[in-house]
Design a protein around this nucleic acid. Structure first.
Lengths: 340, 340
DNA sequence: CTGAAAGCGCTTACAG
DNA sequence: CTGAAAGCGCTTACAG
């Protein structure tokens, strides 16, 4: 086992000073061609690589960014990570991933832990619990210390920072309008409870589309799922007790579950019931029938978020006054087999 | 904006030495109750948190581990990360994620980059290209420098280190035997080319099961997919030109594709054709019919790998001679609707 | 052209 | 009980 070699060791070995070694390796013109070559050859031989931690301490930057997401198992978040990772790597940054598990405490702990020099900036999507508590002190604290934060997807107006979102309201509006255009009028929505920002916005978009088409709003057709582990009954109930011909679900899971349950109850999809989902993930692609859905383009969101963060990091610190931006990533409706 | 406060600033403010501040905050008994309280109160007021990078440099450990995976979009790898993350956090470690994108070069770059002090150890699954090239110098180099590596799932015998695997051969054997027990004899396998270690092992398990039951091996029934983007035709061909009553697919994607194509060709699953997949992911769970599959338990693999790595890190360095272990995570067959 | 010194933020053995 | 010094591994302004 040969431990990593340091400047000090090279200096000693070659009987020169540490400064000389450092400068030689950085191709400083101060150093004679001769020593430079000697040092470089030796360094190469011993496979010298500068210690990143020492560089970080010296430069006060780590070239590492952190992305905090609620859950990695969600395909959407995995695609976002993928987008972040590619852009970050291109720009010479590493990506640290933290999972909040939808928990406020874990989110806080992770941020406080890493804000102490470990990383240069955050990209994050709020946990459910944080959205519910509306407690964002940990985020404003980090920002106050001069560390940039970019929020994506699940964001809040209470924090001023760069953001990357989709227009959830508009996307939901369009999805609903699509169903209406197809001749449906008895359209239900399967959404989440309102403290999840995107659930709320999507519900609003749905309502707006109905209004716009003079379709009376039936509160019974709005299902807000609270418990992610136990929602099948609620959906079954929705389908059984209401006369509906279409469903707009705010995520894949709700969409595929609705299809399964409807089929089991003797309703054919899409003949008897059209279903649109949200998030163009694995489930939508591979379920039978495969699901018409609003594609969020997570890769693009991640890439954009990383770009915004790194731009801020790489620009001279004093431009902090640069105004915060909110980028809206376009969505698109992917038509497949579950609607008619 | 208030920048992070340092020991130096506190010392100056309180007119004591940096050492005194440091010791006070670490509750050293050397310090008088009085100063200790004064310093601690002040530190609390200014929300002092030690700089992680400085600590890392001093302690020569970063409390960060890195997991390198080929693709994050694969549900299996996402579950592994989740397992790693939980154990790591419990033990006070952060997790850095790198994606090799199945590329040898990216794998090498990532490792070399991070081996220079940024992290304490690696957890990794080999990229396809690395397995194909059989070039593992980057890994042995890292190990030689004294940095522990734990490999999982896609491993190699050419590197000595801790490993976490499933018994791919046995799992495939069992899956095939299951089909045989159900009365099938014309069983095809959809596998990957042999340089992917797990593909090879699973094919061997399949062959062993046939032999064991005196079923003659028909080479035409062994399909080895090379190009992940364009394999539908091959599968269609397999089903069309052979008289088969069951398929064992070495991953979810192949399984669901086989089902879709068979259905399209007028074969009913499972009535005319039973299909077993590998990896208990989203696809298997939500496709219709949902798919009988070999569950790999990625969360457990990740947790185990993290545990092995961290144990090695936390144990005194000198036990390096501790023998390397290979842990086998049990798999199980999840029976669902695609087999009869 | 080379090197000693100071510094990034911290800890700890050692003096006083 | 307090503090100066050395050190983790590096860079760079400054002397010589």
């Amino acid at each position: 086992m040969k431990r990593k070699v340091t400047l000090k060791q090279i200096a000693k070995e070659l009987d020169v000073s540490i400064s000389t070694v450092s400068k030689s390796l950085r191709n400083s013109l101060e150093i004679s061609e001769d020593t430079r070559q000697k040092v470089q050859a030796f360094a190469k031989l011993y496979n010298y690589k500068p210690n990143n931690i020492a560089l970080s301490l010296k430069n006060k930057k780590t070239k590492t960014i952190c992305i905090i997401i609620p859950e990695i198992i969600h395909h959407f978040f995995a695609t976002v990570i993928s987008g972040v990772e590619h852009v970050a790597n291109e720009k010479g940054y590493n990506v640290l991933i933290c999972l909040s598990d939808e928990s406020f405490d874990k989110e806080v702990i992770n941020m406080e832990m890493l804000a102490n020099g470990s990383i240069d900036g955050f990209i994050m999507s709020l946990s459910k619990e944080t959205q519910q508590k509306k407690d964002f002190h940990h985020i404003s604290e980090v920002i106050n210390q001069g560390m940039p934060v970019v929020m994506f997807d699940r964001v809040t107006n209470e924090i001023l920072c760069d953001k990357v979102i989709i227009d959830d309201n508009l996307a939901a509006f369009n999805a609903t309008q699509y169903l209406i255009d197809k001749g449906h009028a008895k359209i239900a929505i399967i959404s989440t409870i309102d403290y999840v920002s995107v659930g709320k916005l999507r519900t609003e978009g749905y309502i707006k589309a109905l209004k716009n088409n003079d379709i009376p709003l039936d509160e019974n057709l709005i299902l807000k799922i609270e418990d992610i582990d136990n929602f099948e009954e609620a959906i079954q109930n929705l389908i059984a007790t209401n006369d509906i011909d279409a469903i707009f679900a705010v995520n894949e899971l709700f969409a595929v579950t609705a299809i399964k349950l409807a089929t089991k109850m003797g309703k054919k999809v899409p003949e008897d019931l059209s279903v649109i989902g949200f998030t163009d993930g694995i489930i939508s692609k591979f379920s039978s029938p495969c699901i018409t859905t609003v594609s969020q383009n997570g890769v693009k969101m991640g890439a954009k978020a990383a770009k915004m963060l790194i731009e801020r990091l790489d620009s001279e610190e004093d431009d902090e006054e640069e105004k915060y931006r909110t980028e809206v990533i376009e969505t698109e409706l992917v038509e497949r087999e579950s609607t008619i």
